[in-house]
Design a binder for these strands. Structure first.
Length: 462
RNA sequence: GGAGAGGUGGCUGAGCGGUUGAAGGCGCUGGUUUCGAAAACCAGUUAAGGCGAAAGUCUUACGAGGGUUCGAAUCCCUCCCUCUCCGCCA
């Protein structure tokens, strides 16, 4: 890992005594991680193509050679260990039956030598296996066969569009003009507190944000049947390995200086990892959770491009929905999950479209992603308010999420899915811009009014 | 943060240097019995990985990591977590 180039305070954090999140413990190595190595051995061409479709060039032969060497050393050290164990048993017997001290000492010496050999062999194996693991953890999830091929966002496919762009008898304003004028969004004072890329909400703006969070959660728990969670916003960095943010995207989130804790970039991290290392029973599935959390993102390298206002901020609120499900139904579940996110936009009366991301634009951990983009009348652009993905067994492997298909059966990796439903700032943007009136006030959609004490219109609250 | 007590299989709970991957109990699975059920009895019941077509076999795991030893659940060190008391605090 090249750590020198990372900004201070960023993962890996600076405490010298801390465990390195990528130095897996023996217990963690015992679990299968990352991609399915057995599958890679059997069908390297599949992976070559899959990674190629994503624009990643991978030395598959090198991986296979390394894997073969690791297994060779493993076999060797294990048979040496077996000999040591045999020898130890006969020493015990000899000692018990009062055999000659000389014979026992000779046997001990032989066992010691075998033990040293086994240890040396195994140390080599551990080092090579760690190298292999480090490389495998950087490889993206192969895309689902349904994903359209393409190099970048230009190849994404618009699969649905709902509603129509609102029309105005006046020139609609952007949220970064509307909000401050109404006294409900304060960029300047947020920058004073935390620098650029932060936003403060005030009065009806703050309450509108809270109303959206409450309403989203109520719809998911009440209508869609999710279980609500309230989870930690700081997690150990190995959880970020579980969901795939680490090791590759270490520069994209905030870390603590003295503790192995990072601020979550999305609720996906704590919620998906909630059952990490567990074996669930088939009848428990699908597990469906929803959670509201703030999300913290450094957005390194994103400054300046279409980031005016609060379309891209370092801290924002989001309601997330997460499924742990079976491989048989995960494809269908992705559509259900996407539907749950879409429902919210429809009930808010916001014009939006659905994108099916192409192979080159699909996120590192995802196998298949739909983005929901809401229309921003003030800037005449589409804003991503949700990303709905199935990860196949990719995260399940990394996080150790398994289930038992039938009683007494072998545990197998389950499938994980998640989606934003929805991300707050861009919903606020779309609401303010879509429902703005000629006098600069903003109407409130009917579904939200009960959450705002009956407020139907936000006027100036300067 | 300080002091003490602990962390063993799905659960409970023994073991405190050598057939202990782990007694006993509970639960679970299959069988016997029964018209059926309960009870009783018998048998089985952790996971990961290597080799193997399979049967099987070997390795590893008693919170985690390291050490002592021919051999560690058992002894030593470090760390983590839980509980109790004290301190502090929303």
């Amino acid at each position: 890992m090249a750590t020198a180039s990372l900004p201070a305070g960023c993962w890996p954090y600076t405490s010298p005594d801390a465990p390195h999140p990528l130095r897996h413990t023996a217990a963690e190595c015992r679990r299968s991680r990352m991609i399915d190595l057995a599958h890679l051995r059997k069908d390297p061409a599949f992976f070559s193509k899959a990674w190629g479709d994503r624009g990643a060039s991978v030395d598959v032969d090198g991986l296979l050679a390394l894997d073969a060497l690791v297994r060779e050393l493993k076999t060797a050290s294990e048979s040496l260990k077996a000999e040591v164990n045999q020898a130890s048993k006969s020493i015990a017997q000899a000692a018990r039956s009062g055999g000659g001290a000389g014979a026992v000492d000779a046997a001990k010496e032989r066992a010691r030598q075998l033990g040293d050999q086994a240890k040396a062999t195994d140390e080599r194996r551990v080092a090579l296996e760690q190298t292999l693991t480090d490389r495998l953890l950087l490889l993206p999830n192969p895309c689902h066969p349904a994903v359209p091929l393409g190099a970048d966002s230009a190849a994404n496919r618009v699969v649905d569009t709902w509603g129509q762009a609102p029309t105005f008898a006046f020139t609609p304003k952007a949220h970064y003009d509307l909000g401050p004028a109404l006294g409900i969004i304060d960029f300047d004072r947020a920058a004073k507190l935390s620098g650029s890329g932060f936003v403060a909400l005030r009065g009806a703006g703050a309450r509108l944000s809270r109303a959206l969070i409450s309403w989203f959660l109520d719809v998911h728990t009440g209508t869609h049947g999710y279980v609500e969670l309230a989870v930690p916003y700081l997690v150990q960095s190995k959880m970020m390995v579980g969901t795939g943010q680490l090791p590759k995207f270490a520069d994209q989130f905030y870390a603590c200086r003295d503790d192995d804790l990072v601020l979550i970039p999305t609720a996906e991290v704590p919620v998906t990892n909630l059952h990490a290392g567990e074996i669930l029973e088939a009848e428990q599935l699908p597990v469906r959770y929803t959670a509201h959390t703030p999300c913290f993102r450094r957005e390194a390298g994103a400054a300046g491009v279409g980031t005016r206002g609060m379309t891209r901020v370092h801290q924002f609120d989001k309601v997330e929905i997460v499924w742990l499900t079976t491989p048989e139904r995960s494809d269908a579940d992705l559509l259900s999950l996407r539907g749950h996110a879409e429902t919210l936009l429809r009930q808010l009366g916001l014009h939006y479209r659905v994108l099916e991301l192409c192979s080159g634009d699909t996120g590192f951990s995802s196998a298949h992603t739909y983005d929901l983009e809401v229309w921003s009348p003030g800037t005449s652009s589409w804003l991503e308010v949700s990303s709905c993905s199935t990860f196949g067994d990719f995260q399940a492997r990394r996080a150790g999420l398994r289930y038992r298909a039938e009683k007494g059966g072998k545990p197998a990796f389950l499938h994980t899915l998640n989606g934003s439903a929805l991300a707050l700032p861009r919903c606020l943007i779309a609401l303010l811009e879509t429902y703005q009136l000629a006098d600069g006030s903003v109407a409130i959609p009917a579904v939200l009014q009960p959450y705002l004490g009956g407020l139907a219109r936000i006027g100036s609250c300067a």
